[in-house]
């Protein structure tokens, strides 16, 4: 008899707990929609924009032309569309670069190029080289460039392919991963 009464009490308490849980779920407040965060709004934008970056000694180190630039507050970086860049070394044009988009640090010391990236030397360079990839980070001040994206290099009649690149232009050295070179018949 006592055992039945115990089971009866347990059933009542369990039912009461279930009912309470259901009521809580029924009347819980609607989850708040996350506040809408639109694209980062630039501080200001310029059309037909040109950016010239000078070193401390007054030498021009970077020259950028672009149809559109957005300058962002905070760290003051530039978002530049379809940039055409000239990277100089000791005041002399050394490299050219093109891309669909780029992000340039305010001091011009780091360029992130994205989309149809082309990083190439000038035609009169005795050792012309043409680097193509989808993403490349360039450090004009340090004369370096690097990517972990697949990269194609056209050098003379040879085509080189790799899965990553580290370029040091002060020593004229390139380090490539998963290296492939195709040299046409003589």
């Amino acid at each position: 008899m006592a055992e039945r009464r115990t089971w009866l009490a347990f059933a009542v308490v369990a039912g009461f707990a279930a009912a309470t849980q259901w009521l809580l779920w029924l009347f819980q407040p609607e989850p708040e929609a996350p506040p809408f965060i639109g694209p980062l709004r630039p501080e200001y934008s310029l059309d037909r924009f040109e950016l010239k970056v000078f070193k401390d000694n007054g030498q021009l180190s970077l020259d950028v032309n672009s149809p559109r630039m957005d300058r962002h507050g905070g760290d003051g970086h530039f978002m530049v569309r379809q940039p055409e860049m000239v990277i100089l070394r000791e005041g002399l044009p050394q490299w050219q670069a093109k891309a669909e988009n780029s992000r340039i640090e305010s001091n011009g010391e780091r360029l992130e190029l994205q989309g149809g990236v082309r990083f190439y030397s000038f035609p009169d360079d005795p050792r012309p080289i043409d680097i193509r990839t989808e993403y490349l980070t360039a450090f004009p001040e340090e004369q370096r460039a690097e990517t972990d994206s697949p990269v194609t290099l056209v050098q003379g009649t040879s085509i080189l392919r790799a899965s990553g690149l580290r370029a040091d232009f002060t020593t004229s050295r390139l380090q490539l991963n998963d290296f492939q070179l195709h040299s046409p018949p003589r």
């Binding site: 080289i129 490539l176 991963n177 290296f179 492939q180 070179l181 195709h182 018949p185």
Partner: peptide
Amino acid sequence: RNQAMDITARDSDIDLESGVHQL
């Protein structure tokens, strides 16, 4: 000898000045 040459390696270090690739 009249065919193209294809070279592959895990890594390569290219000296653009001398035109020598270390594979």
